[in-house]
Every structure is written in C-alpha cells, then in structure tokens.
Amino acid sequence: MSNWEILWSARDQFWSGFLSTMEIFGLSVSAAFVIGCGMLYLLEGSRPRLTVPLRVFIDGMRMLPFLILAYLLYYGLPAFDVRLDAWWSGVGALAVYHGCYFAEIFRGARLTFPPGQVEAAKAHGFTKGKMFFRLILPQIVMQTRPLLGNQLIYALKDTAFLVIITVRELTAAANSLSGTYFIPTEAFIVVIGFYWAVSVVMEIIIKQCGRFSAKRGFDHV
C-alpha cells in the first residue's frame, strides 16, 4: 500500500478531526465576536474603574502566546479547583483570546467613528444601549470587515495548537496517523489542504459581504 492509500483508508479519522475543528472554530469565533462586541460596549462608558482594567486585560491577552493561554486553562486552572475538559478549555481559550483581538479591532474603528453621528443619535432621543447596537456597532462591523476576516483565519490556525492539550481535532488526526504509520509529509499535506480550503471559503464569504457594505459606502478600509 502506498502512503496515500494508507491515508485514504484512514479518511474517517481525518473527517472526524475536520468536523471537530470546524465545531471548535465555529463555536469559539462566535463567542469571540460576542466577547469583542461586549468589550467594546463596556469601553463606551467613561468610567475608568471599568475601562482601565478592561484595557489592561485586552492588552495582556494580546501579548500572551495563544499556546500558553491554552496550557494555563487546561493545566493551570485545576490548581484553583476549576476543571475543564480539553475540548472546553480549547474553546474557552480561543474565544477569550480572539475576543480580545476582536475588541481591539473594534476599538480602533470606534476611535475614528464620526462624533457627529453620535450627536445626531442623542439629538433624536437615543440612549446609550440602543445607539450602540443599532447605529454604532453595525457600522463598525462593516468598516472592519477585512480585519475581521483576517482574524478569523488566525483563529482557524490557532485551533491547531489544541493538539497540545489533547483535543481530537484535525491536526491531532494527522499527528496520530503520521505517528502510527510514519508518514508525516503526506499526513500533514492533507491537513494543510483542509485548512487552506476553509480559509479560501471564508475569504470568498467575506468578499461577498463586502458588496453589502460597499453599497453603503464602507469599502475604503
């Protein structure tokens, strides 16, 4: 049997690894997006007691290698009697880590948000919450779309780190096959193909969303 035939016969393992990766990715970036939006909302206030620690937290996360965060959640938390299984540690680490990146992307866009639009909202009787969710956030998301797309690809690639904390995802599948049959090159080439295909599909979707925002004049980023 050639190496490729071995891999073909193990296609179920790849497929279940791929599904697991997609599940982790989908869940964690959705959570990260919500976390990013939530943090932006909290940063809206002018209460330094809240905003200063939040900024420190966001910056702290951005300076931390993702792998170390995953380690900390999986191996470090049990010291505080918090036990998450590998899967939830992985999803949690990805969500918080990329949530901070989302928040930072949004914050940058918020800084250049036209103050006149906020005044117009206030003049029309909007209060903070409705103004944020109906007028500010939608524009910020449209405006930062290319950066968000980029961040999604980072998040996809970071799922591969979770092999270290024993999550059974795509890279773990390749790892185990390459170990069993000693065919690392072919096994990893297959995995690269999967990551690449997902990235390409995401790029296409993000581009399509671009039409929606271009119509509203949001494509000069």
Binding site: P114, G116, Q117, E119, A120, A121, K122, A123, H124, G125, F126, T127, R134, L135, P138, Q139, M142, S213, R216, G217, F218
Partner: peptide, 29 residues
C-alpha cells in the same frame, strides 16, 4: 433622552447614518 426627543436637530454636516437607507434613516428613531 425623552426631553431631547421633543426637539429635532439638523446639523451642518448632516450626520445621516450611512448604513441605513434614506427611508430607514427617517424611521429609525
């Protein structure tokens, strides 16, 4: 906000909300 809503303001720089079309700019508030 309630008292403010009793006034309508028109700005020098228009300040329309660009992600909403004309009709929805008017119906939003």
């Amino acid at each position: 906000a309630r008292v403010r809503a009793r006034t309508g303001m028109v700005f020098q720089s228009f300040n329309l909300w660009p992600h909403l079309n004309v009709l929805h700019n008017v119906t939003e508030a």
